[in-house]
Design a binder for these strands. Structure first.
Length: 363
DNA sequence: TAATCGTGGAT
DNA sequence: TATCCAAGATT
């Protein structure tokens, strides 16, 4: 597969996109501002996230935290609670950290160049380029999933877009195409074109302004480009949650690093090799936490929920445990548990799995 | 570099 | 039901 000649001396590509864009662009709130804070907020929210899913979160964040100072001053749990349900929670933690850094080290003003933006936690090459071009008109090309797809098809680039090494090829092409006088418009245009017209499945080639110039269309390779290697299948994990309750107190835990859902709250957890757990193990586990339970309670039906993540499946069983006495401070410290009233749990950030469980049993 | 980090919608 | 994948970043 050969590549079409690419050069800024071939301006048809940018001209076609910049003509297409104002006729097809969606009216989105972050397109009405040049405030780097608002743009940064929208870009982080939209990482690996569809506009339809991210939009309500953007409106909530920009309303709750109108400035970087407001976000920086908020507790992490509150920020994560607003992020709840959006996934990839490191984005929220990194975003919160960066807000505090911008306030403390940049006097509340975002860095003004691509190179400086790139240093911020949670801001990679794409997001730095997006902010730099949208807010400051810097001539640096964005490279997201849309751009990969459009460039691969139009110019017949067959490199594996899942391989990091392919990035430099696409980046070089994009950098060559982006015009000096309208970098922001070009970046918006090529992404919007990929999102609306040059879609992954069934792209609208019939009314495509690039059709006559498109390598993939002319060679019947639309469904073959871009080339993307498949990710390996994820593993299945078996979570046994012990929902410890004493009177109206429930015991929960803030999840730690190096695993899914860092920073979110769940219950005392025993991870096993199977979905079944011997009754004896249930008793032992609860007693190890400092709680006491009789075997009769173990027999009661437990709720099972399956949850699918990007790289693993979780099969969770929830074992409600009525305690005869509150957990001791020592037991709490050992297990990393914290006591909450039922009414307080709503405000804690939780995964969809835990939220669903609580919704099902209704406390 | 390859693996990992969520969730929901489309096919 | 299974698979893809969406305005990526981090380690």
């Amino acid at each position: 597969m050969s590549s079409t000649f690419v050069s800024s001396s071939n301006p048809w590509f940018g001209a076609a996109l910049l003509n297409w864009y104002p006729r097809h662009r969606r009216d989105l709130p972050w397109r009405h501002t040049r405030d780097p804070y608002a743009i940064w907020l929208s870009e982080v929210i939209l990482q690996q996230t569809r506009v339809k899913q991210g939009l309500p979160y953007y409106l909530d964040f920009i309303t709750t935290y109108p400035t970087v100072h407001d976000l920086a001053a908020a507790p992490q749990d509150e920020v994560l609670r607003h992020w709840q349900g959006l996934g990839y929670y490191s984005r929220a933690r990194n975003m919160h950290h960066t807000a505090q850094q911008v306030v403390q080290e940049y006097s509340g003003r975002f860095p003004g160049t691509y190179a400086e933006l790139l240093k911020l936690r949670g801001v990679g090459q794409y997001t730095a380029a997006a902010i730099a071009s949208f807010a400051y008109d810097e001539q640096v090309a964005v490279l997201d999933g849309n751009v990969y797809r459009v460039l691969a098809r139009v110019f017949g680039l067959a490199q594996d877009i899942a391989a990091p090494a392919s990035r430099k090829v696409f980046q070089q092409v994009a950098d060559t195409l982006i015009p000096a006088d309208q970098p922001a418009e070009f970046n918006q245009a090529i992404m919007e074109f990929g999102a609306i017209q040059c879609t992954p499945v069934k792209p609208d080639c019939l009314f495509c302004p690039l059709q006559s110039q498109c390598y993939a269309f002319q060679h019947g390779l639309i469904s073959e480009l871009p080339v993307k290697s498949k990710a390996k299948a994820g593993r299945t994990r078996y979570f046994h949650y012990f929902v410890l309750q004493y009177e109206d107190t429930l015991y929960m835990r803030k999840r730690g690093p190096k695993d899914i859902w860092e920073g979110l709250y769940d219950f005392a957890l025993h991870e096993a090799d199977s979905a079944d757990l011997p009754a004896r193990t249930v008793v032992d586990t609860v007693e190890a936490l400092g709680g006491r339970i009789d075997l009769a309670q173990v027999e009661e039906p437990v709720q099972s929920l399956r949850h699918v993540l990007s790289h693993q499946k979780v099969e969770a069983r929830f074992h409600p445990v009525k305690l005869e006495a509150p957990l001791t401070p020592k037991a709490l410290a050992t297990a990393g548990l914290l006591p909450y009233k039922a009414s307080e749990i709503e405000s804690l950030p939780k995964s969809i799995l835990i939220t669903n469980y609580i919704s099902n049993i209704g406390f």
